[in-house]
């Protein structure tokens, strides 16, 4: 039976300085006002830092525009994405605000595509909760607009935050799936290249040295013993998404008979002072019911929650010279 597809969320919290031009515009949105910038007798909205024709830096000559404007063109979005300003059908439109010479792209909330038209008058509306971002404002047909009191905030907006959050879903590749199922069965499954003879664990399904794709017939089972070939002690920094608080070891373990190490192995039971390259270790798998491979993906192999710990075997260390030539 196939393992379920892997789901994964990629997030980056972007914090951007805005500078004096975009900052002026976003400060305006926070305070319920719209601005353009003067450029050779014309007014550009949203304001830009340089002359679009010549590239010359523009003087900070801001002009109030809107709150009304005219739809120059629009597209009716029948099925919004999760990232759109509205989670119901709406229009993206090119809106030329009163007093501006160039249109701004923004969202118009309207009852339906019939309520939209080229030349339609629209008006800015402000969100109750404003975040110093372009999404603080949206537009509606002028006839259905409402007046709202937007209190003036303090100071100039200097930062805008944008959390990027993307979701991905994909099935495991064939070789990764067999590796994952091996872990669930308490085994390390790798692949031996039919060309170079090198043993890859976990395998990506190909031998990058000889550019040869491998199949299930190239699968090999590795023992649970190996040698530490590299490690690092990580003192966690409290960045966004960090869950660790105490220093910990991440080690690379070269299983006996393998040419590539298992990377990023979590070491918690061997004191930092005793840990070293050349140390002989053995994987202790968790009881079958406690093993899971939910963390494994095509991007990230690891060993999931299948291994309880790596324990020293008590054998003499492997001399460093014997570790040379591996595919690290």
């Amino acid at each position: 039976m196939s393992l379920p597809p892997r789901q994964f969320t990629l997030e980056y919290p972007y914090t951007r300085t805005v500078g004096p031009v975009v900052g002026k515009f976003l400060t305006g949105l926070r305070d319920g006002r719209l601005f353009g910038i003067r450029c050779r007798g014309k007014v550009i909205c949203p304001p830009v830092e340089s002359d679009p024709e010549t590239g010359e830096t523009l003087a900070h000559d801001f002009v109030p525009v809107g709150p009304g404007g005219v739809v120059e063109s629009f597209t009716w979005i029948a099925e919004p994405t999760r990232k759109h300003p509205f989670q119901r059908p709406f229009a993206f439109a090119l809106i030329r605000l009163d007093g501006a010479d160039t249109p701004i792209v923004h969202a118009v909330s309207a009852d339906g595509p019939e309520a939209m038209a080229k030349g339609l008058r629209v008006r800015a509306q402000y969100r109750d909760e404003r975040k110093s971002a372009i999404t603080d404002v949206y537009f509606v047909p002028e006839a259905g607009s409402r007046d709202s009191f937007v209190p003036t905030g303090e100071g100039e907006v200097q930062i805008t935050d944008h959390l990027i959050s993307l979701v991905y879903e994909e099935p495991l590749t064939a070789s990764r799936e067999r590796y994952a199922k091996g872990l669930l069965a308490g085994k390390f499954i790798g692949q031996k290249s039919p060309v170079s003879g090198k043993v890859f664990v976990p395998s990506s399904g190909y031998d990058p040295l000889e550019r040869c794709l491998m199949t299930e017939q190239d699968d090999v089972e590795l023992p649970t013993t190996g040698t530490v070939v590299g490690f690092t002690v990580i003192t966690p920094v409290q960045y966004y998404g960090q869950k660790e608080t105490e220093p910990y070891i991440r080690a690379s373990v070269l299983l006996d008979g393998a040419d590539t190490p298992l990377g990023q192995q979590d070491i918690r039971d061997i004191p930092v002072g005793e840990f070293r390259v050349g140390l002989r270790v053995r994987a202790e798998f968790r009881p079958p019911a406690q093993r899971n491979v939910d963390e494994l993906s095509n991007r990230w192999a690891g060993t999931g929650s299948c291994i309880a710990r790596w324990v020293p075997t008590g054998e003499p260390d492997v001399p460093l010279e014997q570790l040379k030539g591996g595919l690290f």
Partner: peptide, 11 residues
């Protein structure tokens, strides 16, 4: 544009 367009999900 990360200021004027990306937050709108303008695709």
């Amino acid at each position: 544009d990360p200021y004027y367009h990306a937050p709108l999900g303008l695709d």
